[in-house]
Structure formats: C-alpha cells, structure tokens
C-alpha cells in the first residue's frame, strides 16, 4: 500500500475525474495504469473499485498494491462485463489508443451508469500551430510520441468527440477542457474556445 504522503498529488485530470465520483460508488477504471487514480478513489472516496490494464507492469504494480485489477485489453475484454455493473466507468487518456474507440464508448455506457472520459485535444492551438509551422506530426507534453512509435492511433479534437456523442445519442452531463496551466473551461459554454485553448478534455457521459 502507498503511504499517505504519496497519495496526495495525482494528475490534474485524474483529480478532476476523482472529484466527480460519488463516495462509496462502484467504479471500473479502464486502462488504470499503475493504479494511481484507483488507489486514490479506494482510499479517499471509499469506492468499490476495479481496474483493467493492458501492461504487465501496470497490472503487477496494482495487484501488488492490493488493488483489484485484471490484465486485459479494453478493446476485447470490456464485453465480458455485464450491463449496469458499475456507477462509473473511467477511461483516462486511453480513448485515443483504442482500436475501436466507438465500441469502447458503447461498452462503457452499457457497463456503467456514467462514463468519465479524458483525452488529449488534438484541436489545441499549439498542436495546430506545430503542424502548421513545422509541417510535422505534433509532439508535446501530452503527445510525447513520434509518429511511428505512438500508441495514439485515434486522436481526436474536442469537436470531433462532441460530434461522436451526438451521433451515438450520448448525453453529456458535464464537460471541461484543461489548458496547459490546468485551468478549466466549460466546453458547452464555448466549444470553439475550448477546442482551441484546451490541451485536454474531460467528459461525464450517460446514456
């Protein structure tokens, strides 16, 4: 188990997600990595939490820390979970690495009453400028990979994501963008600005 002091600081987008989760609820963290968010939720929000993680290192770190995490691939293994099993299904910074992000979203909202999704915004002005000025695939703190070794095969902009939600009839309960200084901006008040100034986005979705 982590020491209390180690638990304090979690990534801003994770903190944002954590703040939206009701204490004591049932949470599935898809692509939970080393379990940072799950550990936080279990200990500070008393959630009944589970994780799904692809990497061996991530899974072993989670289980070693006493977190219930299974090794698996969101693209193929979400279908093994039953309907309405969780209050929240979380997908933080992983949607863009899915083979079939649309199917993953569908399963998240089938399994959970709500889905919490965060992703890097490809419409962020610095990303656009990088491509415009350099003529090369954008790289930044949130997009640290080169084109040939990136796991991010389905990057999208905030507007792209809004369009997909509309197409799938998904209700957006809350949506914010975070800029590079972690300042939040409500997406629904001005999608254009959020798409330009948001380095990443966090959505609360329901059926």
């Amino acid at each position: 188990m982590m020491a209390e002091s180690q638990r304090k600081a979690i990534r801003v987008d994770l903190q944002f997600i954590a703040d939206m989760i009701e204490p004591g609820s049932r949470v599935l963290d898809v692509g939970c990595g080393d379990g940072t968010l799950l550990d936080y939720l279990v200990h500070f929000k008393q959630v009944d939490g589970r994780g799904l993680e692809l990497s061996t290192e991530g899974v072993n770190a989670c289980v070693s820390a006493g977190l219930p995490v299974i090794q698996g691939d969101a693209d193929t293994d979400l279908e093994t979970f039953p309907d309405n099993a969780f209050d929240y299904v979380v997908l933080s910074q992983t949607l863009q690495a899915m083979v079939a992000p649309r199917t993953v979203l569908h399963h998240m909202l089938r399994i959970g009453r709500r889905a919490l999704v965060s992703f890097p915004n490809f419409g962020y002005w610095r990303v656009r400028l990088f491509l415009l000025l350099h003529g090369r695939m954008p790289m930044s703190d949130t997009l640290p990979y080169r084109w040939y070794d990136t796991p991010n095969i389905h990057l999208c902009t905030i507007k792209d994501f809004l369009a997909l939600c509309r197409e799938l009839g998904i209700v957006i309960e809350r949506s914010v963008s975070l800029d590079h200084k972690s300042r939040t901006r409500r997406i629904n008040s001005s999608p254009f600005t959020a798409n330009l100034l948001g380095e990443q986005a966090v959505f609360v979705l329901r059926r």
Binding site: R26, D48, R50, N60, V63, L67, I70, T80, F81
Partner: peptide, 18 residues
C-alpha cells in the same frame, strides 16, 4: 475463470506472470 468472474462483476484481480 476471469471472464466468468467479470460476467458477474465479481471482485477479481488477474495477472499473468512472465
């Protein structure tokens, strides 16, 4: 086994050790 447990949203950890 894990799939059977997931199918009922049981509390399960699963690790494959190299």
């Amino acid at each position: 086994i894990v799939n059977a447990l997931n199918a009922v949203a049981a509390n399960v950890s699963f690790a494959e050790i190299e």
